[in-house]
């Protein structure tokens, strides 16, 4: 039984408090969106969970193990700009995590090929990152995170830099891949529609220092379909969250 438990995380940058006593839990197979205005501290929370940024206080437990301040160990991260290694082919980028773990070449390339095909990039194994479009690069970024078979997937505004059409396509792809390989997901975004479309549960964050304004359990069935974006419940939830965020900004 996998489980993520974040308790009482605090973080300040200099004298500016970014996170004050934040706690959250993610259950097995649950897709949780962290939604909030830009710069509110939700990305910092994600990086603390990833271990890239040290917390001032608080603990992070993954499957019962204390992973506070450590990277790796069951977590796969998808970065906003894909951030692929330009000197590695698409396939070698996907295999990176396994290479760091010491998996042999034949084995890791076979795994990487599987995930590269899964994200729809069959035939692009030997392409250099600069030869791929932004959307394709982010597909490689997603495959790279999946390839280490993490129990927790961390995504930091992964589609934020893409155009609307590409983002819609990649959202559907992500849902498809994730439904085939259910794992815990923490998805940072400032897109209300994106959060509603993808997540099981949304934590709506305030402006800085970030705290959870409201927790919303998304009532839609899976598999999710494009049409649900026109559903009246969807539109109502969207307006509700939008009002909530706007109120907070002016408060």
């Amino acid at each position: 039984m996998t489980h993520l438990s974040v308790s009482n995380v605090c973080k300040s940058f200099g004298s500016v408090p970014v996170l004050v006593d934040q706690s959250l839990d993610v259950e097995e197979g649950e897709f949780v969106a962290l939604l909030g205005p830009s710069g509110c501290g939700k990305s910092t929370l994600l990086q603390i969970i990833n271990g890239l940024v040290p917390a001032d206080r608080g603990t992070i437990l993954l499957d019962g193990k204390d992973i506070t301040g450590r990277t790796g160990a069951g977590r796969g991260m998808v970065f906003q700009g894909a951030d692929l290694f330009p000197w590695r082919t698409a396939l070698e980028n996907v295999a990176f995590g396994l290479e760091v773990m010491g998996v042999g070449k034949a084995e890791r390339l076979e795994q990487a090929r599987h995930y590269l095909h899964l994200v729809g990039l069959r035939g692009f194994e030997e392409a250099w990152p600069h030869q791929l479009s932004g959307g394709m690069q982010q597909r490689v970024g997603i495959a790279r995170a999946f390839c280490i078979r993490p129990s927790l997937l961390l995504m930091d505004e992964p589609f934020g830099a893409l155009d609307v059409q590409t983002r819609d396509i990649l959202q559907d792809e992500l849902v498809r891949i994730w439904e085939a390989e259910r794992k815990m997901v923490l998805f940072v975004t400032h897109g209300i529609e994106e959060a509603l479309y993808l997540a099981d549960r949304i934590l709506v964050f305030s402006k800085r220092p970030a705290h959870v304004l409201r927790e919303i359990v998304v009532p839609f069935e899976r598999p999710r379909r494009e049409e649900m974006k026109l559903d009246s419940t969807f539109l109502e939830l969207r307006r509700e969250i939008s009002d909530l965020l706007r109120h907070d900004i002016h408060a």
Binding site: L52, R70, G72, F79, D83, F96, V100
Partner: peptide
């Protein structure tokens, strides 16, 4: 790029790696 170094760190790459 510090970003790429962060990517490597997030995959638990050691200093040498």
């Amino acid at each position: 790029s510090p970003k790429l170094i962060d990517v490597a760190r997030s995959f638990a790459a050691s200093d040498a790696q």
